[in-house]
Structure formats: structure tokens, C-alpha cells
Design a protein around this nucleic acid. Structure first.
Lengths: 117, 117
DNA sequence: GACACATCACTCGGAATCCGATATAACGGA
DNA sequence: TCCGTTATATCGGATTCCGAGTGATGTGTC
């Protein structure tokens, strides 16, 4: 019996960014910070506090896992994290939830526009 | 010189839901709670603590305003809140930000699927 | 070699936020 | 009259955020 991804929703902004950063490929902590900054066009920056609080929580929840083996050519300090199957399900569910909200928002923003732009 | 909506991003989940609930029409506190529950299909429920913390913060930031006059037929206990022009801009900006993230996520979720479903 | 800067992991503690239990009271119907 | 719903609001503990700081190694430059 699988864990229900719905249980973990909604994701906080920080959590969503981290999970999303790991959706493309496995990354190490510092790499996650860089990817989040890149994704958001440097608008949103993740500090180490938020990052490690979240990594710990996400590992406990089984949404991400620490990867054992290293790549050969790598900086040995790096510790890599990977999105689990559950994690992928959680991300998919959260994206669906957000899309629903966005549909609603677009409708309202278009429908009620008391002042023209 | 206008306030820059970007300054307020990203919105927390609670804040986004509240602002979105006010995008369609002015609402009173209890009505916001109901609308948020309705919007999310009762998946996300806003308690009074989160609601009033947020209302106070949003008023200070000028994103929402308390509406003075009442509707005639109304329960006199109700206090109505309205989305300001700035608030509408913030919501628009946040929706755009989320859409960018969703595009990214959809791409990664489709592109990297190491295990078949 | 010396210096600076980037990479990399991580801790700490205060601030911000969440959020349900609780208080209070008016309303509406059985 | 009694009760459930509507309605506003506070309180305090729990959770989360988040940057400053620590420490170490890699990398490039003078």
C-alpha cells in the first residue's frame, strides 16, 4: 500500500523549490541552492538554514533519499540527494493543485477588472 | 511611484489562498475561510489564527483594505476585506511566477521518468 | 608561496509564520 | 428554550524560515 501524496500537500515555497530542483537530476546541497536561484531568475534565494531543515524533513518523509554511491569524477565533499518515487508523486500532485488555483485566479483577474491597465 | 509587487513574492500558501479568495469579490473573515475550503476542495483549511495573522500583515502591506460601508441586508457583525490595486498586482505577479515554475516542473516530470508507470 | 574567492557541508538562534484550542457573542430555526 | 451555525478575535506552542557564522577544500592569480 502506497503512501498518499496528497497527505503532504500543500508544499511550502521552499519545499516546492527543492523538490523541483531535484526533479531534473540528482543534486548535492550547494547545487540545489544554485538551481533554485537559477530557476527563479535569482528572485528567490534559499539559505543553508532553510535548505537543511527541509532536506532533513523530506528524508524523514521519504520524499527524497540520500544517494549512496558517488560519481567518479566528483568533488568528494558532495552529498547527493535524489527524488523518490513518492517524491515524484508529491510533486505531480502539487503541480496539479497549483494549476487548479491558477485557473481560478486567471478567471477572477480577468472577470473583475474595475480599472483598466 | 508605485510599490513594486515583486517585492512581496513569493507568497506563502496561506497568503496566496487569502488573496485569491478576495480576487473574485470582497469577503468577510469567516467567508474567506469558507471560500478557501471550497477552492481547495476542502483539502486545505485555514484556521482563525493563520487568517488573522495574515489579514493584519496584508493590511499593513497595503495589499488588502478593510471596507468601511456595509451591505444593507447584512449581518452587522461582518467585517469586509477588499483586494487593493497593489494586491491585484501582487496576485498577478505571483501567478506568473507559479506558471513559470509549473512549466519547468512539467518539463522535468515528463523528461526524466527513469521507471515506467 | 600567498592571497582571494568559489565551492561544499553544516549549526545556531532569533524571527516569522502557522494553526488549533479557546473565548465571546449574535443569529436562526426546531 | 436550546442548539448548531455564523462571526470575530486572542493566545501560546509548534513549526518553519533564514541569514550569520564556522570550517574545510578547491582553484585561480599575482
Amino acid at each position: 500500500m502506497r503512501e498518499d501524496p496528497q497527505r503532504f500537500l500543500p508544499l511550502s515555497t521552499a519545499t516546492l523549490h527543492i523538490v523541483l530542483a531535484l526533479a531534473g537530476e540528482d543534486r548535492h546541497g550547494y547545487g540545489i541552492m544554485q538551481e533554485v536561484a537559477r530557476q527563479s531568475g535569482a528572485k528567490y534565494k534559499l539559505g543553508p538554514g532553510t535548505l537543511y531543515d527541509n532536506l532533513q524533513k523530506l528524508i524523514e518523509q521519504g520524499i527524497i533519499e540520500e544517494r549512496g554511491q558517488k560519481a567518479d569524477d566528483d568533488d568528494p565533499r558532495r552529498r547527493y540527494y535524489r527524488l523518490s518515487g513518492l517524491g515524484r508523486g508529491v510533486l505531480t500532485a502539487e503541480i496539479a493543485r497549483l494549476e487548479g488555483m491558477i485557473r481560478d485566479a486567471r478567471f477572477h483577474l480577468r472577470a473583475s477588472k474595475p480599472r483598466r491597465a
